[in-house]
Deep mutational scan, measured.
Amino acid sequence: EVPFKVVAQFPYKSDYEDDLNFEKDQEIIVTSVEDAEWYFGEYQDSNGDVIEGIFPKSFVAVQG
């Protein structure tokens, strides 16, 4: 069931425009499960802007 919160276990950096880049310990709200390997989610950056994109499930852990 979406949405749910995950926390980055590792930093994720990608050159693909659709990917969500983040640092370790970033909290991310997952709004869609793309497939067995990928989530789609969002978070607010330090400027208060909402950043969204896809990212690999293996880089995050589900909270709770």
Rank of each mutant, 00 (worst) to 15 (best):
E17F: 09
K24Y: 05
E1N: 12
Q9G: 04
K24P: 04
E27T: 09
W38S: 07
D15F: 10
F55N: 02
W38M: 09
F59L: 14
I29D: 04
E37G: 10
I54Q: 12
K57G: 05
V50T: 13
G53C: 05
S32W: 10
E52L: 08
Y16K: 15
S32I: 06
N21L: 05
P11N: 08
V33T: 07
P56G: 03
E52R: 15
F22Y: 01
I28T: 02
N21W: 12
E37Y: 14
K57W: 06
T31K: 09
S58Q: 08
F10G: 05
S58K: 12
D15C: 15
D49H: 12
D15G: 12
F40R: 15
D19H: 15
F59P: 02
F40D: 00
Y16R: 15
Q63P: 13
G41C: 05
Y39H: 01
I54Y: 15
K5M: 10
E23G: 07
Q63K: 12
P3S: 05
Q44K: 13
G64N: 11
Q63C: 14
F22V: 02
S58A: 11
W38L: 07
V6K: 01
K5I: 11
L20V: 00
S14T: 09
A36D: 14
V33H: 06
P56M: 04
K5W: 11
S32F: 09
E27D: 05
E42H: 15
G64S: 11
D25W: 11
A8R: 01
P11A: 14
E23F: 06
E37P: 06
Y43D: 00
F22G: 01
N21R: 07
S14L: 03
I29K: 07
E34Y: 15
F22M: 03
E52D: 09
G48M: 05
K13T: 09
K5Y: 09
G53F: 04
E52W: 11
E42K: 13
V30R: 01
E27M: 10
G48T: 02
V30I: 04
Y39K: 01
S58H: 10
K5H: 07
F10T: 06
Q26N: 00
Y43L: 05
D19A: 15
G53Y: 04
Y12C: 05
F40K: 12
G64T: 12
A36S: 13
E42S: 13
L20G: 00
S58P: 03
N21V: 07
D49K: 14
K5E: 04
V7P: 01
I28A: 01
K57P: 06
P56Q: 03
G48H: 04
F22E: 00
V2E: 02
V50C: 14
G48N: 05
K57V: 08
I54H: 15
P11V: 06
I54N: 10
D49R: 14
E27Q: 08
E23W: 05
P56T: 04
E37T: 09
V30Q: 02
I28S: 00
E23Y: 06
K5A: 06
S32E: 07
F55A: 01
E42W: 15
Y43K: 00
D15Y: 10
I28V: 04
D25P: 02
T31D: 03
D19G: 15
D19V: 12
S14R: 05
I28Q: 00
V33K: 06
F22L: 02
E17W: 09
E37S: 08
D15A: 12
W38N: 09
D35E: 06
T31P: 02
S58M: 08
I29R: 06
E1R: 13
Q9M: 15
I51P: 00
D19F: 14
V6H: 00
K13A: 07
Y43F: 08
V60I: 05
S58Y: 09
P3M: 05
Q26R: 03
F22N: 01
Y43H: 00
T31A: 02
G41V: 04
V60F: 04
A8I: 03
D45N: 12
V2N: 04
V62E: 09
A61L: 12
A61Q: 12
Q44P: 07
V50R: 13
F10D: 03
D49L: 13
I29Y: 07
N47K: 09
F55G: 02
V7C: 09
F22T: 01
E34H: 15
G41A: 03
A61H: 11
T31E: 02
D49V: 14
F40M: 08
A36H: 11
E37K: 08
V30C: 04
N47W: 07
E1Q: 13
F59G: 02
I28M: 04
E42N: 14
F40A: 06
T31G: 01
Q63E: 11
A61C: 14
F59E: 03
S58N: 09
E34F: 15
A61W: 10
K57H: 05
Q63N: 09
W38V: 05
E1Y: 11
V50F: 08
A8Y: 03
F22Q: 01
F55D: 02
Y12D: 01
S32A: 14
S14W: 03
D49N: 14
D25F: 10
E37I: 09
E42D: 03
W38H: 14
E34L: 15
N21F: 10
S46L: 11
Q44I: 14
P11R: 10
Y39F: 09
V33F: 07
F40V: 06
F4H: 00
K5F: 08
S58W: 10
L20A: 02
G64I: 12
E1V: 13
E23M: 07
E27F: 06
K13N: 10
F55P: 04
E23K: 06
L20I: 05
